[in-house]
Structure formats: C-alpha cells, structure tokens
Simulated assay, not measured.
Amino acid sequence: MKRKINLNEVTAKEPIKVKTQIQSSQVDLPKEEVSKSSPFNLEIEVRRKPVGYDVKGKVTGEVELTCSKCNKKFTHKVEQPFHYELMPTSEIGGGQIKKGDLDIKFSDETVMDLAEVVNEQVLLNLPVKPVCSKECEESTISFSVGEEEQVKEKTEKEVDPRWAKLKELQNKLSEKE
C-alpha cells in the first residue's frame, strides 16, 4: 500500500496514478464528530504542469456520525471526487481571491502524503449538520397551544435555587408596578 508520492518523479508525459487503501488509524478525523470510520480507498492521479501539479482523484469509505437532531449514531458514505492544483508558495499572489483560486493548494513539499489527502477530503465533505434519515431531516420541534402553556408553567415553577433570590426580587418589582 503506497502512502506517499515523490513529486520529483512526476512528469507532464508520465503522471503518477495510485490506487491504495488508507487505514482509519492513519487519518486524523475529529473524534467529537466522527465516532469511527472504515478504511478509505483512494484513487489519485498527479500530473506535472509548467508550474505546479494537477491533482485529481476520488476518496471512498464510511464514517460513523451522530445525528444532530435525534442524537442517534449512523453510517455516512463518503464518495468524494476531488480536483485541485498544487502550486509552490512562490505563486501566492496578493489581491482578491477569485472563484478559480479556491481549487488551488499551496505547498513547497516534495512528497505528498496520501493519508493527508484523504484526511483533507473527508473533512471538507463532512456534513455541517449530520442527519440520520429523511424523516429526521424533515422533522421539526413544534408545540400545540396547550403544550406550550404547560412548558411555560413548568419552567416558571422550576426556579434554580441559585436564582431564587433574583426571582423574589423580580416578583416584588412586578407587584409594585
């Protein structure tokens, strides 16, 4: 299993193509978001350009996430094609960022770590608010009029003892008005 690509070996006529599997232990995903993950399959092609490299490929695998609505763990499939330019840091220009600039990565490294490529692509494509199912995505928390009053009464009755004095003061002020 190849883990690194030496960029000095890449030519315009002879790109380097790699199909490999990166173990989940080699990928540094945030544990508070990803409970566990399968090994990731990576297909990557690196081609030299007059300045820099053209990098394209695909990452596939699975991660276990927690639903942001019901808090249930579920499996999320990762099937992410990617394409970007790898440029030397000397090419960083000043000024405004243009639309095409978002597909450029800057680095002066001569070795590309494939585990870092997988890690970056999985992180970029994790859902911001993961949901386990279509039903959970469409569900909303709603109260009927009666339930809303019950919730209001319950919260008014249950005063945290640390705030009791403040609640007494608030009640006295309300009575004076």
Rank of each mutant, 00 (worst) to 15 (best):
Lys154Cys: 00
Arg48Asp: 07
Pro50Val: 14
Ser35Val: 15
Leu29His: 01
Met87Val: 10
Glu177Ser: 15
Pro130Ser: 08
Gln121Gly: 04
Asp103Thr: 14
Gly146Tyr: 01
Pro88Lys: 13
Val59Ile: 12
Glu156Ile: 11
Val51Glu: 14
Val63Glu: 01
Gln150Leu: 11
Glu79Phe: 02
Lys2Gln: 14
Lys176Glu: 12
Glu33Gly: 03
Cys132Glu: 11
Asn119Met: 15
Lys31Pro: 04
Lys73Ile: 05
Leu123Glu: 06
Ile5Cys: 04
Gln23Pro: 06
Val131Tyr: 12
Lys69Pro: 07
Ile5Phe: 06
Phe40Cys: 02
Lys17Ile: 12
Leu169Arg: 09
Glu109Thr: 13
Gln80Trp: 03
Glu62Val: 02
Pro161Asp: 15
Val55Ala: 05
Lys172Val: 05
Ala12Lys: 13
Glu147Ile: 08
Lys134Cys: 00
Met112Trp: 06
Leu7Gly: 10
Asn41Leu: 03
Pro130Gly: 02
Glu153Met: 00
Ser24Trp: 06
Leu124Arg: 05
Gln170Val: 11
Leu65Asp: 01
Cys67Leu: 11
Gln96Ile: 13
Cys70Ser: 14
Leu126Phe: 07
Val46Ser: 03
Thr66Cys: 11
Leu123Thr: 04
Lys58Pro: 03
Lys49Leu: 15
Phe82Cys: 06
Lys167Phe: 05
Leu126His: 04
Glu148Met: 11
Val117Lys: 04
Lys4Gln: 12
Phe143Met: 13
Gly94Cys: 00
Ser24Leu: 03
Asp101Gly: 10
Pro30Phe: 06
Pro81Thr: 05
Lys69Asp: 08
Leu42His: 03
Asp54Tyr: 12
Gln80Arg: 01
Val118Phe: 02
Leu42Lys: 02
Lys73Arg: 11
Glu156His: 11
Val18Asp: 01
Glu137Cys: 00
Lys105Trp: 08
Phe74Asp: 05
Glu109Lys: 15
Cys70Pro: 10
Leu169Cys: 00
Leu173Phe: 12
Val118His: 01
Glu85Gly: 04
Lys105Gly: 05
Glu138Thr: 00
Lys172Gln: 13
Val46Gln: 03
Gly100Tyr: 13
Asn119Gln: 15
Cys70Lys: 11
Arg48Gln: 11
